[in-house]
């Protein structure tokens, strides 16, 4: 067994174990931490596949931003733990049956007869002067430049949508409107009314 295989099986074990721990965790915050461990294992497997840039992106964007966002939301919302696990046992057999059937089918289809080393040999490792980021950037800014711009637009839409959804209208305090104050005229504020004072007989 080569060292590459040993590393692959160790990383796969941690990936699968942390994913299982994630879906069976009783506490949502613990589930997030298990998912972080799973993402680290996934990033290591991607480095094994020579996708260094995406592995770093997975850790920076997912672990650094998205998972921290999950933790923020979990800490902000007061989740009732008793209601979380109410229907746990009810759907457990169905979920396990469906998952096991899909795994069996996938292993039949994706086994070594179809995608093994004889059919698809492992490519030669790149040298030390190979830069994954350069190769990706050459593709991204030439062939895929239009989808790249679209991705930027999608992120902008996500920012606007998230802020619009969560933003509260401020009703707790009053603000001064400076332009209104500057443009005010005397006739807007003071109204002169001529009142005839009543005589003694009318009173």
């Amino acid at each position: 067994m080569s060292s590459e295989q040993i590393i692959f099986y160790i990383l796969s074990f941690w990936f699968i174990a942390s994913s299982l721990a994630m879906i069976f965790a009783r506490n949502a915050a613990k589930a997030v931490l298990f998912l972080v461990l799973g993402f680290f294992s996934a990033a290591s497997i991607w480095i094994l596949l020579e996708a260094e840039f995406l592995a770093i992106t997975l850790i920076l964007v997912y672990v650094g931003a998205v998972m921290v966002l999950f933790l923020f939301v979990i800490k902000m919302l007061n989740i009732d733990k008793s209601t979380m696990r109410a229907k746990f046992a009810e759907y457990l057999p169905l979920g396990l049956i469906v998952a096991l059937i899909i795994i069996a089918e996938m292993i039949l289809v994706l086994g070594s007869a179809q995608f093994g080393l004889e059919v698809m040999p492992s490519p030669a490792r790149h040298g030390a002067d190979y830069s994954n980021i350069t190769v990706l950037a050459m593709q991204l800014y030439t062939t895929y430049v239009y989808p790249f711009e679209l991705a930027a637009v999608i992120l902008l839409i996500a920012i606007i949508a998230a802020i619009t959804l969560v933003h509260k209208k401020e009703t707790t305090h009053k603000k001064q409107n400076v332009s209104e104050q500057v443009n005010v005229r005397a006739k807007d504020r003071v109204r002169l009314v001529s009142i005839v004072s009543p005589t003694k007989e009318e009173k």
Partner: peptide
């Protein structure tokens, strides 16, 4: 595919 199925089973199990 194993990770995919774990995620799928998680959706079934944690429906609430």
């Amino acid at each position: 595919s194993i990770i995919f199925c774990i995620g799928l089973a998680g959706i079934f199990i944690n429906r609430t």
